Simulated assay, not measured.
Amino acid sequence: MENEQRARSFEAALRRAGVRITRQRAALLRILAAADDHPDATQLHQRAMAAGAGVSLATVYRTLSALEAQGVIMKLEFEGAAARFEPADQQHHDHMIDVETGEVMEFVNDRIERLQAEIAREMGYDIVRHRLELYVRKRR
């Protein structure tokens, strides 16, 4: 989904939740929609401030909470780190988290997907949804 379209989708979700769309909140939504990483609330606040949005950190948290409740963003809680966020409209992917730098990398691996489905089937289940997080360290 294109950034502007995603920002409009976020705005519509907030309106459905009864949240007023201020100039600051609209700027925050554009910043979130354009993020190509997995920002936390503080990072989004810093980006909004750098863009001149003048949004409070409390507004960032309230906005993220409302967007998550509407199902348009996903809250990612990785070990030992602040919650991060990503749009919920993305194709399924898993995450690798570098334990030294905190960098979050997305990946898709068909072998892993097939193996998970096979294991669930062998145990008499179908996978409804899943999340895979690999905590990694660069080889030296």
Rank of each mutant, 00 (worst) to 15 (best):
H130R: 08
V108Y: 07
G52D: 10
A88Y: 02
A117L: 08
D126C: 01
Q24N: 06
A117P: 05
D40N: 06
V72Q: 01
R30K: 07
K75N: 09
A12V: 05
G18V: 05
M123W: 06
M1Y: 15
E11M: 14
A81I: 04
G102M: 06
M74D: 08
D126F: 15
Y61D: 04
L76P: 00
L14E: 08
A41W: 06
T22Q: 04
E133Y: 11
L132C: 02
E68P: 02
R140P: 05
P39Y: 15
Y61R: 02
R139D: 14
L132D: 03
A34N: 11
L76T: 08
R137P: 05
A7E: 15
V128S: 07
A82C: 02
L115N: 09
A27G: 10
Q70S: 10
A7F: 14
A51P: 03
F78P: 07
R129F: 11
Q91T: 03
I112H: 00
Q70W: 11
V108Q: 07
E113G: 00
T101I: 12
E79R: 11
H95M: 01
T42E: 09
R62V: 10
Q46R: 11
A51C: 08
V99N: 06
A34L: 05
Q24E: 12
L67C: 09
R8E: 14
L14M: 09
D36E: 15
L14I: 05
G54S: 09
E86R: 00
L44A: 07
V104N: 08
A51R: 12
F107C: 05
I21W: 04
Q43L: 14
R114D: 06
K75Q: 10
D40E: 12
R111P: 00
I31T: 04
A69F: 04
I97A: 03
R137S: 05
G80L: 09
